[in-house]
Computed example of a mutant assay.
Amino acid sequence: MDLRGRGPAFLEFWRERHLCSLTTVRPDGTAHVVPVGVTLEPAVGLARVITMRGSRKVALVAARGAFDPTGPSAEPGPRSAETDPEGIGIDSELSVIVNGGAGVDGPPRRRGGARVAVCQIDGGRWSTLEGLAVVRDEPAAVAEAERRYAERYRTPRVNPQRVVLEISVTRVLGTL
């Protein structure tokens, strides 16, 4: 989805420095909402969130079908109450990290993905991007996400456990 046609006010709003929220869905259907920094690549309709491999948001996205059968991925480890205490379908080490299957110059190929929403608000201006998220851990994908994050927010600290949630935008809501 090319978002450049949404107009200059929309594009500028997604370049301004605003804290956002990411909403994922828990196994029981309730919302898991956390503050995040989001970057947007309007030409390809791709939003990115950098985060840690062991975060709850990564676990929820990985457990909700964020797998690309056309690209390489790890198989999940054995599951038990000890390794998967919340019953979300992945082991505690999050061995299921997904390779989206494309280089940093285009959106990854996707089969499925977790339904998520990112939202930012500034007074009466707000914008929500809904879409399908996958987890990517390839160095090029992480480096591109870090570069974009540094442009919008600040240079992120070094984190060897960093991964990227890549969201293919499917719907836009808001006042812009």
Rank of each mutant, 00 (worst) to 15 (best):
R109M: 01
R148H: 05
A59T: 00
G131P: 04
E144Q: 09
E130S: 15
G113D: 05
S73I: 02
I90N: 08
L94G: 08
A114K: 03
E82V: 07
E86P: 05
V116G: 08
S95R: 07
I97W: 13
R64E: 11
R148Q: 15
V116P: 03
R48K: 01
L40D: 06
R111G: 11
A145H: 04
E75A: 09
V38P: 04
V36N: 03
H32L: 05
T30E: 13
P76Y: 10
P72G: 02
S92H: 13
T51C: 12
L129P: 04
R56P: 08
R56V: 12
D137E: 06
A114E: 02
L132E: 09
V49R: 13
P76V: 05
V58E: 10
R56F: 12
R109S: 06
G87R: 04
F67L: 13
A81I: 03
I97N: 11
D137L: 15
A66N: 11
L60C: 06
E75Q: 08
A31P: 07
I50S: 09
W126A: 11
P78W: 01
L129E: 15
E41N: 02
V33M: 07
R147K: 13
A62L: 13
P69R: 15
E130H: 14
G112S: 03
A59M: 09
S92G: 15
G87L: 15
E93G: 13
E75D: 14
V142K: 01
R148G: 05
G100F: 04
L40H: 08
G124E: 10
S92I: 01
E82N: 05
D91Q: 07
P139G: 00
R115K: 05
V44A: 00
S127H: 00
R110H: 04
G112K: 05
D84G: 07
G106M: 01
D68Y: 14
E93Y: 14
E82W: 07
E82M: 07
T39K: 03
P35E: 10
V33T: 11
G113R: 05
P42Y: 12
V118D: 12
L94D: 13
T30S: 11
E86Q: 12
S92N: 05
V98I: 09
G106H: 01
D137M: 12
P72Y: 15
S127M: 04
G103W: 04
V118L: 06
R64V: 10
V61I: 09
W126H: 06
P108W: 00
E138A: 00
A140R: 06
S127C: 08
A143T: 03
V98H: 08
